[in-house]
Design a protein around this nucleic acid. Structure first.
Lengths: 116, 116
DNA sequence: TGCACGTGTCAGAAAACGCTTACACATGAA
DNA sequence: TTCATGTGTAAGCGTTTTCTGACACGTGCA
C-alpha cells in the first residue's frame, strides 16, 4: 500500500475527520466490510441523521467512499467503504505538510484570497 | 524511531491536537529546533496567550514537551520541543485503536463512568 | 522609578461542532 | 391505503473551540 502524502490543508481535514471517537468507530466498522447507512447506524447505535453527518465529513476528507446502489427490491441504498489511505505522521513529515498550508498564516500576511 | 501505538482515547486527543493549521505550524516550527514561548509567538505571528493555549493542547496530547528554564539574566523561560512520535494511520490500525475506545460507545451502553 | 522582557491566567465574543427532532420523498409488501 | 424499509435535509440548541484584550507577577537595566 502506498503512503498517502496530502497537502497541508487536506491533512488538517483528514486529521479533523479522524479526531472524533464516533467517526473513528465508523471507520473501524467499515474496515470490517462495506455497509449501508441505515444498517450501519443500527450497528453502531446512533441515529441515522447523526451518522449521515459524520459520513459526510469522512467522505469530504476522502477517508470513506459512498456509492448509491439499487437493491433487488428497488430500494436506493447508499453503501460506504473505507478509502485506501496510509498516513505517516512524524515531526518532519508534519513540517513538510505545514509548509504547504494556505490558510491561517499570519507570518505571510494574506497572500491568498482567504475569506477567514 | 519506534512507531507510537496509543490507545483509542489518546489517539483521538493527538489527532485533535494536530487537526489545526496553527498547531500544525507550531509543531513544524519546533521541528526546526526548540524555542521559548514569546519568541515562538513572534516567529509565527500570533499573540502569546493564543500560542500558550495551543501549546497546552499539544503538550496535553504528548506531542510537544515544555521545560521551564532560567536564562543567564535570571528570566524564567519556557522552552518547548517536539516529542518523539511516529503515528501510522491505516484503516486497520485505526480499527485496532477504535477497539480500545472507552467513551461514546452507544452500543456498549454506559459501561464506564462517563459524564457525557 | 520606569521600561523592556519573560511568565501565567481570566473574561468575553464569534464561530464551529455534536446531536436531536422533525420533516420530505421513494419503494415493496400486507 | 397503510406500514416498513430505504434515502436526504433543515431547524434548533447546548457545548466546545478559537481568539482578543486586559490583568497579574517576576527580573535586569537605564
Amino acid at each position: 500500500m502506498t503512503v498517502t502524502r496530502p497537502s497541508g490543508d487536506d491533512l488538517v481535514e483528514m486529521l479533523a475527520a479522524l479526531a472524533n471517537p464516533l467517526r473513528l468507530r465508523i471507520v473501524a466498522t467499515l474496515a470490517g466490510g462495506r455497509d449501508y447507512v441505515s444498517h450501519l447506524a443500527r450497528e453502531i447505535g446512533i441515529s441515522r441523521p447523526l451518522l449521515h453527518m459524520h459520513l459526510q465529513r469522512l467522505e469530504a476528507a476522502g477517508l470513506v467512499v459512498g456509492t448509491l446502489e439499487l437493491s433487488d427490491d428497488g430500494k436506493a441504498m447508499k453503501y460506504f467503504e473505507v478509502a485506501d489511505f496510509d498516513l505517516h505522521l512524524t515531526a518532519t513529515s508534519l513540517a513538510e505538510a505545514a509548509a504547504t498550508l494556505t490558510r491561517s498564516d499570519p507570518a505571510k500576511g494574506s497572500g491568498e484570497k482567504e475569506k477567514n
